[in-house]
Nucleic acid binder design. Structure first.
Lengths: 203, 203
DNA sequence: GCCGATTATGAACGACGTTCAAAATATATA
DNA sequence: TATATATTTTGAACGTCGTTCATAATCGGC
């Protein structure tokens, strides 16, 4: 009733996450079940629970990998055209990712941990990496010593970008309106405002 | 095995939605099950399926009511202090709602219909009503004939506001940073940018 | 008081997350 | 090599879920 060492614990872990990726990529959170993942890697449900504590645990780790993929894509973009061009470039890359992997990207925000559980520190660090890209693009606009303000602005832009893509991809907003156009408007006007009136609020 | 006319079909409909509201308010989407709603109104699951086609159907209608509640709250705000003050007021009202009813507000975006189904026109109309409030606040900034541009900007602001609250309430961004502060920054700088450089992109 | 239409029922189905004793294999010991 | 111990996989089990539907109970009209 067992075939110990067909795969190591780490291999199982990786195979399960890879299978989860494929399933979520094609069917979203609704199709992502423990039994389905187990079947897809040729093991039984019970085995999955030796590797993950929960289905939530698995999903949270999958989310980590999605953040990784997004970062891997965005970090390749050259950030040397000045704040506005660089932010546009980052935004475009983000939009491209949401368009290519709508189900996976949707997972990042669709999944909600139950009351007691908190997302792992690891994932928060990955978000911070993404924010760092925003900060780098914003760099020239802030003088030395204004790092807190820069982080603040990076957060606002990041969240706004997310909001536009979120409502846009759900089709809840865009009646004939393109996500790209909306993001263009956001970046353009926000940056003009930033130039003409530096941040006042403490971050 | 039946007690016909204990309640009319409409009464059942209303009771079920009211129960769903209470459950979602307290426990979010995870606690919202067909059997639970049925139990809470003193009927069986089968009865629920005489009134709603689906659990998705019920949730979608619940979402409609949540939009209603949000609108009812925001529409009371006086919009007569100029664009910046009015937008701040709307944003504050929105944030207040998300703070008072985090689970219900989260439902608006957490719930994803499966591939084939589309949200009813009714709900899109309710979103449009909310956008109208944004448009009203933005009113003075746009000359006659620029309604398309105004709607475009309203959408961008609405989505950005949503994004900030979304990431903020999930705790995915705000390490000691307040949602209110972020929204302040958004409104301030976006409006300054709008004043100094009117919308170029066609809506 | 009866009958056809309506309505609530609850059992059924397959799938879900999760647990766990038991079974099968690997590893250590002699 | 033979035996004992530790490890890993299993599959059945539990309770719950969404959903369906024949059946039973009630209602309105005669």
């Amino acid at each position: 009733m067992a075939r110990r060492k067909d795969h190591t614990r780490e291999e199982l872990h990786g195979m399960a996450l890879a299978a989860a990726w494929r399933i979520a990529e094609a069917e979203g959170l609704r199709g992502l079940t423990a039994r389905r993942v187990a079947r897809e890697i040729g093991y039984t449900v019970g085995t999955l629970y030796n590797v993950f504590t929960d289905l939530d645990d698995l999903v949270v780790q999958l989310i980590g990998r999605i953040f990784d993929a997004l970062y891997e894509e965005l970090k390749e973009l050259p950030l040397d055209g000045g704040p506005e061009a660089d932010l546009r470039s980052l935004a475009k890359g983000y939009i491209r990712f949401t368009g290519r992997q709508p189900k996976l990207w949707g997972l990042l925000f669709e999944h909600q941990l139950p009351e007691g559980k908190e997302p792992p520190e690891e994932n928060e660090a990955k978000i911070h990496l993404l924010l760092r890209l925003m900060e780098r693009a914003l760099g020239p606009l802030f003088s030395l010593g204004k790092e807190a303000e820069r982080l603040h602005v990076a957060r606002v832009l990041w969240a706004s970008l997310h909001g536009i893509c979120s409502l846009g991809s759900a089709g809840k907003l865009t009646a004939g309106e393109t996500i790209t156009t909306m993001v263009e408007t956001l970046v353009t006007h926000f940056l003009v405002g930033l130039r003409d009136e530096p941040v006042k609020q403490p971050a």
